[in-house]
């Protein structure tokens, strides 16, 4: 365990924001979940008590009939904003006095930095270069992510949770966004802490040895299958011809979209485990969760138009599923391309 190496990475001035994020993201996630839980408890209580639901102000924040529902912005909001700007200013001053912005040697096109890394917020993209060709990782994926974020409000047809924290009513939408956000942070983490010289995988605490050589024996999926024992037995050698691998890859990618679509369709009709009888054993409840459609989630799905549904499926399979699948294929099975054509490789 090379603690010094770990310290060098974590204390690099430009990496400090990531270290900060490792604390900030959990803190704010906890703040959100805490409020969501409180609201969810209130929702359960009001669902069970229609009489109370009619008179209740429907918030967890305290309220009495005599109280005004609105406050004057001057001074009740403006003073908070002022305080926040003061605090942010103080933080910036302390940060700027204690930590210097990095400055390396003058730029030199003849001396390549190793590893040469993008700024930390783009390391997710750079890490994607391992799994996809540059035109996908650098151009198509970022565009898909941006457009995917923009269509998010248009494909989420549920009217629930508009303006209040809740998990119970927005399980799927939150899950999808959370999954994307987590993946993004994870890629940045890998890019910062794990990728060393030569963009080689070094576990945290492993020394970044510039002489390390990894003999990658990356193979394409069609080769992997054709040369495997089963492939040889079934005489799948034709998969390695130009036409063979192009057709095979197309079928694999097409099949991936169909299976991925089915997976998301299955996932979006699952409710929470808490909707099942708590007295049943956990394995039984898990089985019920896997096999039965949730009524509430099904109602939400019924409200979704075909266009919304297909748009969501396209982005979900292309980004949210393709990325981790390709990541696992590459890291665990050392598979480089799944679809090889004379014009492009995926």
């Amino acid at each position: 365990m090379d603690w010094h190496q770990l310290w060098i990475i974590a204390s690099a001035p430009d990496n400090v924001p990531i270290v900060a994020m490792l604390f900030l993201v959990p803190i704010f996630t906890w703040m959100g979940i805490r409020q969501a839980r409180a609201n969810d408890r209130l929702i359960v209580r009001l669902e069970g008590d229609t009489k109370l639901a009619k008179t209740h102000h429907r918030k967890v924040e305290p309220w009495r009939p005599g109280w005004a529902k609105e406050l004057h912005v001057w001074p009740y909001l403006v003073r908070i904003e002022f305080l926040v700007t003061l605090i942010v200013t103080v933080i910036l001053f302390v940060w700027s006095i204690t930590l210097n912005a990095p400055l390396e040697e003058p730029s030199n096109p003849n001396l390549t930095m190793n590893p040469s890394k993008a700024p930390w917020y783009f390391l997710g993209l750079q890490e994607m270069l391992v799994y996809f060709d540059p035109w996908i990782a650098g151009v198509v994926m970022p565009s898909l992510i941006m457009i995917g974020l923009m269509v998010f409000p248009y494909v989420d047809s549920s009217p629930f949770g508009n303006g209040y924290y809740t998990i119970k009513q927005r399980r799927f939408a939150l899950g999808m966004f959370g999954w994307g956000f987590l993946m993004w942070i994870m890629l940045i983490f890998i890019g910062t802490f794990i990728r060393g010289p030569g963009w080689i995988w070094f576990w945290p605490g492993q020394t970044w040895d510039h002489n390390t050589v990894v003999f990658d024996k990356n193979v394409d999926l069609h080769d992997f299958i054709a040369t495997s024992a089963i492939g040889k037995f079934l005489h799948l050698g034709f998969l390695q011809s130009t036409a063979g691998k192009a057709i095979f890859g197309g079928l694999v990618v097409g099949g991936f979209y169909i299976l991925g679509g089915l997976f998301f369709h299955w996932l979006m009709t699952r409710g929470g485990l808490d909707r099942f009888d708590g007295s049943l054993p956990l394995t039984r409840r898990l089985w019920l969760w896997i096999t039965t459609k949730d009524k509430f989630e099904s109602k939400l799905l019924a409200r979704t138009s075909l266009l919304q549904y297909l748009t969501f499926q396209f982005f979900a399979v292309s980004v949210l599923l393709a990325l981790p699948v390709k990541l696992i294929l590459r890291l665990a099975l050392t598979i480089k391309y799944v679809w090889v054509t004379p014009y492009f490789n995926i």
């Binding site: 609201n39 929702i43 009001l46 639901a53 949770g161 508009n162 303006g163 009513q169 509430f296």
Partner: peptide, 9 residues
């Protein structure tokens, strides 16, 4: 947007 009153299922 809020905190808005919760909506029931």
């Amino acid at each position: 947007s809020g905190p808005a009153p919760v909506m029931l299922e």
